[in-house]
Measured scan of single mutants.
Amino acid sequence: HRQALGERLYPRVQAMQPAFASKITGMLLELSPAQLLLLLASEDSLRARVDEAMELII
Rank of each mutant, 00 (worst) to 15 (best):
S45Q: 14
A4C: 10
A41R: 06
E43C: 05
K23Y: 07
R49T: 07
V13A: 01
A21C: 02
L28T: 00
Q35W: 06
V50W: 01
E43V: 08
L40P: 00
E43K: 10
Q17W: 11
A4K: 14
E7D: 05
A15H: 12
I58C: 05
R49V: 09
L46C: 01
M54Y: 07
K23V: 09
Y10N: 03
L46D: 00
L36K: 02
E52Q: 05
A41V: 13
L5T: 03
G26P: 06
L5Y: 11
L37Y: 11
D51Q: 11
I24H: 00
L56W: 04
L38A: 10
E30S: 12
A34H: 08
S42N: 12
A34Q: 08
I24V: 04
A21M: 01
V50R: 00
A41P: 01
P11Y: 15
R12H: 12
Q14M: 09
L36Y: 02
Q3S: 13
I57H: 02
L5D: 05
L39Q: 01
R2S: 14
Q3I: 08
P11N: 15
F20P: 02
R12N: 06
A15G: 06
L5P: 03
Y10C: 06
R12M: 15
M27I: 07
L5C: 06
S22Q: 09
I24Q: 00
L56T: 11
A34C: 11
S45G: 06
A19L: 06
A48G: 08
A34Y: 14
R8C: 10
R47G: 05
V13L: 03
L37E: 15
E43I: 09
I24T: 00
R12W: 09
S42I: 03
D44I: 12
L40F: 11
E7F: 04
L9G: 01
M27T: 02
H1K: 06
A4I: 15
G6P: 09
R47F: 03
A34W: 07
L38Y: 10
T25A: 04
L40K: 00
E7V: 10
M54R: 08
A41E: 12
P18W: 04
Q17V: 14
S45K: 14
M27V: 05
A41C: 05
Q3D: 15
A4L: 13
A4S: 14
A48R: 13
T25K: 02
Q17L: 08
Q35F: 13
L39F: 03
L28N: 00
G6K: 14
V13S: 00
A53N: 04
P18K: 05
E30L: 10
L56Q: 14
A48T: 08
D44Q: 11
I58K: 08
L29P: 00
S32Y: 11
H1S: 04
I24M: 01
Q3G: 08
L37Q: 07
I24Y: 00
M16C: 03
L5H: 04
R2D: 14
D51R: 10
A34D: 09
Y10E: 03
I24F: 01
E52Y: 08
L38P: 06
A15K: 13
L9A: 01
R8A: 09
D44Y: 08
H1M: 04
Q35A: 12
A21Q: 02
A34N: 09
L38G: 13
L28A: 00
E30T: 08
V50E: 03
M27P: 00
L31C: 06
M27S: 02
A15I: 11
L31R: 04
E52M: 13
L31A: 05
D44A: 14
A48Q: 07
E30N: 06
Q17G: 03
E43L: 05
A4F: 13
A53M: 07
L5K: 02
Y10R: 04
L40D: 04
D44N: 10
A4T: 15
Q17C: 09
S42K: 09
D44W: 03
E52T: 04
A53T: 11
E43Q: 11
K23A: 14
L31V: 04
R8Y: 08
M16A: 03
L9K: 01
L46Y: 01
L28K: 02
G6N: 07
L31H: 08
E43D: 09
S22K: 13
L37P: 01
R8S: 10
A19E: 15
K23N: 05
P11E: 15
R49I: 07
A48P: 02
R49M: 10
L9T: 02
Q17H: 08
I58T: 15
S42T: 04
I57Y: 03
P11W: 05
E52V: 10
G6E: 15
I58R: 09
V50I: 11
M16P: 01
L28E: 00
V50T: 02
L37G: 09
L5V: 08
E52G: 05
G26N: 13
A34V: 13
P11C: 10
E30P: 01
I24E: 00
A21T: 04
T25L: 08
R47V: 06
V50Q: 00
P11Q: 04
S42R: 03
V50Y: 01
L28H: 00
M16W: 04
L28S: 05
I57L: 07
M16Y: 15
Q14N: 09
M16D: 01
I57N: 02
G26Q: 12
M27R: 02
P33E: 10
L38H: 06
P33A: 11
L31S: 09
G6T: 07
R47L: 05
R49Y: 13
A19F: 13
M54C: 07
A21V: 04
D44T: 07
I58S: 12
L36Q: 02
H1Y: 10
H1F: 08
S22F: 11
L38V: 13
G26T: 12
R2L: 15
K23Q: 13
L5I: 13
Q17D: 03
R8Q: 15
A15M: 13
T25H: 07
I57T: 02
M27D: 02
P33G: 05
E7R: 13
V13R: 00
L29F: 03
L28P: 00
R49A: 09
E52C: 06
V13W: 01
S22M: 14
H1R: 06
K23R: 10
T25D: 00
S32R: 05
L29E: 03
M27G: 02
L29D: 01
I58W: 14
R2Q: 10
L5S: 04
L31E: 08
E52L: 09
P18F: 06
L28Q: 00
P11L: 14
R8G: 04
R12S: 10
M16K: 02
D44R: 06
A15R: 12
I58L: 12
D51H: 07
Q3F: 03
Q3L: 04
A41F: 08
D51F: 09
T25R: 11
A41N: 14
E7A: 07
L56I: 10
S32H: 09
Y10L: 15
L9Y: 02
M54N: 03
F20R: 02
S22D: 11
V50H: 00
I58N: 13
L5G: 01
P33T: 11
M54W: 03
A41Q: 10
E52H: 10
L40T: 03
K23S: 12
F20I: 04
L39M: 13
H1I: 10
V13K: 03
R47Y: 03
A19Q: 08
L5A: 04
E43H: 05
Q35L: 15
L37R: 06
I24D: 00
G6M: 15
L56R: 12
R49H: 10
V50K: 00
Q35S: 07
L56M: 06
A4Q: 13
A19C: 08
E43Y: 10
I58F: 10
V50A: 01
P11V: 14
V13N: 00
E55A: 09
A21L: 03
L39C: 11
F20T: 02
A19I: 14
Q14F: 14
L5W: 11
F20G: 02
I58E: 08
L37C: 08
P33D: 09
L28W: 01
E55H: 14
A48K: 11
R47N: 03
E30I: 07
M54K: 15
T25V: 15
L46W: 01
V50S: 01
L37M: 15
L37S: 05
F20Y: 13
Q17N: 08
S22H: 10
L36V: 12
V13I: 14
S45I: 05
D44L: 10
L9Q: 00
D51T: 10
